[in-house]
Structures are given as C-alpha cells and as structure tokens.
Amino acid sequence: MYGQGILRGLKVTFQHIFESYMDDIRWNFRRYRSPEAFPERQGVAARGVFTVQYPEEKLAVPERFRFIPFLVVDNYDHPDEERRGHDWCTSCGICAKVCPPQCIWIVRGTNPETGRPVPEPEEFYIDIDICMNCGLCAEFCPFDAIKMDHDYELSSYDRTSAHIYNKQQLSKEFRYWQSIAPTTAEEEANARGGWEHKDVLKQQAKEAKARAKAEQAASDTD
C-alpha cells in the first residue's frame, strides 16, 4: 500500500520521542540533575536525548585530549628551593622546529654575566590562533617540558594581543600535569627514571655515583 514506508519510518521517529520521555520518567524527572544519570544517558546504552547541557554540565575530556600547549615548571613548593618555578624547558628548539604552522617562538636564555647560553628560555611565545593543536611539540620534546592542556574555554574579548601567549601565561606547575594526565605522567616518569626533571635525575645519579665511589675509596683505605 502506498504510504506504508512513510508510516514505518514515522514509527522510528515516534519511538525516539517516546524514549526521550521514558528517560525522564526513569530518572524521576531529574535526568539533568542527578549525577548518576549523566554517564548513563551519555553512554553506549543511551536511548533517549543525547544533549549535554553546556555550560551547566560539561563532558570530561579524556586524558589524551589536546588543546593549546603549556610549559611545565617545577612545583612552586618544590623541596629544593632553587628549583621552585624552574622551567623544564631547556630551549633546545625542537618543538619550534617540528611545529607544523610554525607558531612557537623561543628566545634562548643567556647568563647576563658570562654571556653563555643557559638551559632555560628567556621568552617563549605561542600564537594560539595559529596553533592547530596537533600535539607534535609535546610528542617530540625530549625533556617532557611542553604538554597539551585540557582547558578549552579560552574565549576573550581581544583577538589581537590576548592570543599570543608568553612564557608566564604558558607556564603551569608540574603538579597540574600530573593531575590532568595521571597515567601519561606516570609512564613518562618511568621512562625518565623518576618524577624529577631529566637533568636533575642525571645530576642525582652523578652525585650518587660520586658518593658511592668516595665510600668505596674510603673503605679501601681502611
């Protein structure tokens, strides 16, 4: 019969309508408020309405989520006073080289007295309008010093200068990276051999070796 196909199609539509209201009844009309309802109505088994009521509720981003990069600095309450707020970046320039749209600008740090380069960037700019959030900088940084952020709410009223981030705006504590990406941070720490910066670990290893040697020498003379 003509029109049967349409009716069958409409059945699907009605089913969808029905299911979206069924959800309301099931959650006692508290579908948008009860925290348990959220994972379910957004999961694979969800049947009804799929909307997330942004900004009242937000979807958690997964750990690997990439947005504008940030620079890792040591915690501001690091036990070693000298390391507090110290950049992990050594201004090696690999990230600037690998960045596809070339939006990273680094000024190498120099020691004002000796004029020799120091392993810390003087300035570090990222033009976040140009950054395509590809994550290559974070992937290839040999010191785990640049990481992709999770904070995606960056709108501002000024699009000329507010969107070029300087070192201060980019720097975030190491603790922050541990909190947004616990598993990745742990993997990286395992690869480095500890939770500290690579250079610190190297230094520590060296000192430990020297100490062991001294002890050895001391015990030999005894």
Binding site: P35, F38, P39, Q42, G43, V44, A45, V52, E57, K58, L59, A60, V61, P62, E63, R64, H150, D151, Y176, S179, I180, A181, P182, T183
Partner: peptide, 27 residues
C-alpha cells in the same frame, strides 16, 4: 587507552569512566 576518560581530570565535573575495549565491544 585502557579507560575512556580519566577520573582525575581537574577541569571537568562530569565523568564517564569506561573500559575502552568494553566500550568498543558494546558499540
């Protein structure tokens, strides 16, 4: 990844934590 979303994510309040393979299987 082992899990779809991390429980510890700071910036977000709503979390769906699921095993990735199970999620895929159901999907």
């Amino acid at each position: 990844p082992e899990r779809m979303r991390s429980e510890a994510s700071l910036l977000n309040d709503k979390v769906r934590d699921e095993n990735t393979i199970e999620y895929l299987r159901a999907l």
